[in-house]
């Protein structure tokens, strides 16, 4: 990698890295693609769903012939075809309180590709407990949000968003929106792994494609937060 400040050392760090992409849909597809293309050596992709036709506007790792197949199998084929030098572990499971520690413990970064807050909160808690960076992303319509959560280093997801948004039967999403946020999640993961740049900690980025703006909301960590409040700084 000849970009300034990355170099061969950065590439080696990427090769040695283990990244979990939790959910291989609209966010997980671009995030894992750019991680694979960048040479992140070990990806674990987790998803319990099968590809549906309605996914294809945004879940760009899955194609028409993949409808009905498991998303992790479909994605693994594309990611390993993209970069044969990486290892991809496909986990066809739903993330639960029973398996979340096993799935996240000891990895370098967890990327949030989920479509619901209960599972995001499980990942947020597990990452805090196991001291793993967690890169939160979420989208709807033309709006996306992004925040990087470092154990012991800033606010967590609960500090920023204490209550889950109302459940809806589906979230209409313009496909390019998770494309934007998923790419930014990959960028944050690459930065954390290589130690380059300033991560998006203590700041939530809000992307609004409707007026094409990127804004930051300052978020402070709260000492009384039940998830991260007692962690050492």
């Amino acid at each position: 990698m000849i970009i300034s400040r990355f170099g061969e050392t950065g590439q080696q760090k990427l090769k040695a890295a283990h990244v979990v992409v939790a959910g291989i849909g609209g966010l997980g597809s671009p995030a894992s693609s750019y991680l694979a293309a960048a040479g992140a050596g070990h990806l674990t992709i987790i998803d319990s769903q099968r590809v549906e036709l309605s996914n294809l506007n945004r879940q760009v790792l899955h194609w028409e012939p993949d409808v009905g197949r498991s998303k992790v199998k479909s994605a693994t084929e594309k990611l390993t075809a993209m970069n044969s030098n990486i290892k991809v572990d496909a986990i066809f499971e739903q993330i639960t309180s029973e398996n979340v520690d096993r799935l996240t413990k000891g990895v370098d970064v967890v990327v949030d590709g989920m479509d619901n807050y209960p599972t995001r909160y499980l990942l947020n808690e597990a990452c805090a407990r196991n001291r793993v960076p967690f890169i939160h992303g979420a989208v709807e319509g033309l709006v996306g949000q992004l925040m990087t959560i470092l154990p012991g280093g800033g606010p967590c997801l609960k500090c920023a968003i204490p209550n889950e948004p109302p459940k809806k039967p589906c979230f209409p999403v313009l496909g390019a929106t998770p494309g934007v946020i998923g790419c930014l999640q990959a960028m944050e993961a690459i930065k954390l792994i290589t130690g380059v740049g300033e991560p998006l900690v203590g700041r939530m980025l809000i992307f609004n494609g409707m007026d094409m703006t990127f804004d930051e909301i300052k978020v402070n960590r709260d000492p009384s937060c039940q998830v991260c409040g007692r962690q050492d700084r």
Partner: peptide, 25 residues
């Protein structure tokens, strides 16, 4: 929630952000 909820006092130069989190992925 970590302040005084709706009774949280405001003073000049405070910055208040209002946003609805999104959920999809």
């Amino acid at each position: 929630d970590f302040l005084q909820k709706l009774n949280t006092p405001l003073k000049d130069e405070d910055v208040v952000a209002i946003f609805p989190p999104v959920a999809g992925g």
